[in-house]
Amino acid sequence: MAIFCTRETKILIQGITGRDGSFHAKSMLGYGTNIVAGVTPGRGGQTFEGKVPVFDTVKDAVAATGAEASVIFVPPSGAAGAVFEAADAGCKLVVCITEGVPTLDMVKVMPYLAERGVRLVGPNCPGFINPGQKAKLGIMPTNIVAPGPVGLISRSGTLTYEVVDALTRAGLGQTTCLGIGGDPVIGTNFMDALQAFHADPETQALVMIGEIGGDAEERAADFVKANMKIPVVSFIAGRTAPPGKRMGHAGAIVSGGSGTAAEKKKALESAGIPVADRPADVVPLLQQIWKR
């Protein structure tokens, strides 16, 4: 069944007429994603690609189409505002692709979402794709995924594609490929994603792609050890990252001696989760421990 949404979930796109929004909206539509509306203030009444109605506000879009989820492609200064708007309009799932959102904006958004029972994915993430459901909420390339039993969680974008591509080439399709984002404050974290995959009967194996910074991987390891029976393998990027330097992602930093790749590897391995030395080893490692 995959996680977070199905082929029936009605999706709208905030920022659908922008440069990035329109490019990715076309790709999402081309994949078969159920996009029912777009939102760009001042563009209400127009149609996108001859079939998707555009509205001035999310509220209008939800009222007219019954949209339940939103994917956000708006610039960083307006990204938190767009998340508030989607939640206020009743969207229960919000995926924020935008990179470069001020961290305190996200801190402010979180209790608002919690009160309304809204799930946020991102920001600064590639979103997710459910190949068996033909649903793509984000920017992942569709040509490298395939339907199947493997779930994937990652803090990164292209590194995720690298591993997804290897899975697909090995004949291992995916229930959901989820990029949770590289910022310090994100909506859905490793733990939340694990809980969702744990509740999905179709996901029979799991790949976790972590990186330096924070201790989300360590917490995830504890959850896996305590709760999950399906095979889980991992890869951690950033073994060679110098301490105190931000490695591209705002959240990818070793600070005060903690958040290192070595610590994460240790925590994962002591929870029985094998950690690949190279991205190319992830799939063989999974095949090794997965008794089908």
Binding site: S154, R155, S156, G157, T158, A237, T240, G248, A252
Partner: peptide, 8 residues
């Protein structure tokens, strides 16, 4: 291209 892949 990409921070995660760059680290990897």
């Amino acid at each position: 291209n990409g921070a995660g892949l760059a680290m990897a």
